[in-house]
Amino acid sequence: MRYLMMSKVTDTTPEPDERLYAEMAKFVEELSAAGVLLATGGLEPGGVRVTSRGDEITVTDGPFAEAKEAVAGFALIEVRSREEAIEFTRRFRGIVGDGETVIQQVFGP
């Protein structure tokens, strides 16, 4: 089963430094080696918002007021169980420090 991990930064999220980059690289390598990590990436802050209401479609450029709620990065992982997904997420949070990650199962391919 696949899970999408989406991570958000909070006020107390530390700025990334050399050590964090090194640990993250090791973690990503480990996940790839285990055949778990299918795709991952960081997301631009802000972005563009497209809303539809009735017949009307509105396109708004960011940044937005609630930017700190925005997803800053994602990873698509393939695991055997929800617990496995949680375990990987725990390890990830242990590396990056304060903040939060939401994991949701991806249905179907």
Partner: peptide
Amino acid sequence: HRTIDAVWKL
């Protein structure tokens, strides 16, 4: 137990 099982498999 489920967590132990997951960690064990990994």
